[in-house]
Amino acid sequence: MPCIEVEELTHLYYPGTPLEMVALRDIELTVYDGEFIALAGSAGSGKSTLVQHFNGLLLPTAGCVKVLGRAISDKQHRQQLWRQVGLVFQFPERQIFSSTVFEDIAFGPRNLGWDSTTVSKLVKDTVALVGLPEEILAADPRTLSGGMLRRVAICGVLAMRPQILIMDEPGAGLEHATRQLILANIKEIQARQGMTVILITHHLEDAAVFAERVAVLHQGVLLSIGPTREVLSQTELLHRAGLKAPFAVELAQQLSQAGIYLPSLPLSLADAAQLLQQMLQTNRVRPGGTP
């Protein structure tokens, strides 16, 4: 079942002025219920503009965007979309405003009109879901580290139990371990609750591990969309879009140029290790690297 249908979407900034700028051109895209899809592209490729249509913050200049079955041009539908579509902006910790973590996470659920017992249960559950200790709820956000703060901010959206979760670079500026943790958590929630996840990223290593499909945007145009393996193997296209293929893909490519062919294309380091191990074994290479 499609939950977002984008048809011939064009979006212009400053239309009709000398500063007119095409942000998106003729985008055709369908997102299905319960999938984890990555929107990849360099800065200025239009990723953020695109997803702002998904919860009704922007309207198409031309074309049509349907979310959960109804067009967003329908004002009533658009104004209620935030109830089902959660949007985690870039650097979401910059939006934290309360003096305790609890209050901040409870902001969205309260706006949904839920009663206080439900809200407080939801807040606690959400914090547990992403693996934060319950004591953190009483903490002052200003005392938390950057990584913690990011996770708290994401909880603020997750606690609203969105059907569709959109995240704009949730790992930007964080160290590797925290980034992995955040994405692994989201993946788990997605699998358990059937939530649809749209991940905006320019870090394809993350897309390789977590996404089922990848869409590549470049200068407002959709260059490619398909299963992760298919899209990430098109290194030339990725390069054209200003992206870098995952290390494993590039390694496989460099090896094939040197005349060494892996039995299949590895997407992650773990994949690559497995394939290489098989080859090393059949070649009877001993540990230490002597054949």
């Binding site: 590797h176 497995q274 290489l276 191990q277 230490g288």
Partner: peptide
């Protein structure tokens, strides 16, 4: 909570599977 370089990590994965590089 840090990692090595991508190549370093791959070497580590291989080492875990019995191929110390």
């Amino acid at each position: 909570g840090l990692t090595s370089t991508s190549a370093g990590e791959l070497a580590y994965h291989l080492a875990e599977q019995g191929f110390a590089l």
